[in-house]
Amino acid sequence: MSVLVFIETEDGKIKKSSREAISYGAALGDVTALALGTVNADELATAGQNGASKVLHVADERLNAGLIQPYAAAIAAAASEAGADVIVTAKSSLADAVVGRVSMKLGASLVSNVVSLPDTSNGFQVKRSIYTGKAFANVNMTTDKKVLAIKKNAVEIKEDGGAASVEAFSVSLDDSLFGTKITSTEKAEGDVLLPEADIVVSGGRGLKGPENWGIIEDLAKTLGAATGCSKPVSDMDWRPHHEHVGQTGVKVSPTLYVAVGISGAIQHLAGVNSSKYIVVINKDEEAPFFKAADYGIVGDAFEVLPKLNEALKAAQ
């Protein structure tokens, strides 16, 4: 099977979720990866560690920003170039916006939130997460070409490969595809990206105000975690919207989710129920979140968190 994996970079590095997508593709067949915009070739060659044999690189500066129509056109062109039967990408804010277009260009079936390798014993069947992590569906993809968007943290990263060959790939992209003007970009610098994070520390209304977020940030720093928050916290502008975890915010699937001062409304749980382990710290022993947790502490966040932070540092 010939596989094309679309990879995204962040601060010049291949994103962890893209390495997951390459590893997924390598389990299916021969992987050609695709990178768009200015990226260092040495970094791209490391896609080989995860199982890519080749990286096509479209070093077109116009693609340094994630523009939806040109990206879709470039991915479809690379799929043809690589003769790909399957196109794989990590599910992400950008990929979500792009892959629907790619599937239409290729006449390919598209399934998102994929959590397992396909069963090809009778056709091509994948398992996907549905109902915001509350269930799964087994889906038969009935077209010759397939596009899969893989749920984050659902695939183990393969690291035993060698270096991939990096080849310049030129795509003719019509100016008409660049009608959208990006006028500004705001991005938190240097932080662990919430949707990519292995560990997430989230705070809720129990923190009482944005000025108290230091204890969340300190714990996150010790754990190498991203910070998140509940919907009321983002609604009150204590924290930016991109940190809002829940049904209408970011859905995370880390190995460890630490919830502090969050009661655990069902809409919040919908955003975290794919987490492998959940720790809940809340002073209300009746907080519904404890029912969804693996480990719980009933206590005041302002007392527990500094102690926990010290204990974690001591254990490192």
Partner: peptide, 20 residues
């Protein structure tokens, strides 16, 4: 259509919380 669902599944039930 491009796909068909053959079956649904529920995730395994969560074990009891360990209180500390």
């Amino acid at each position: 259509t491009h796909s068909a669902i053959s079956a649904y599944e529920l995730p395994p039930a969560k074990g009891a919380v360990k209180m500390i």
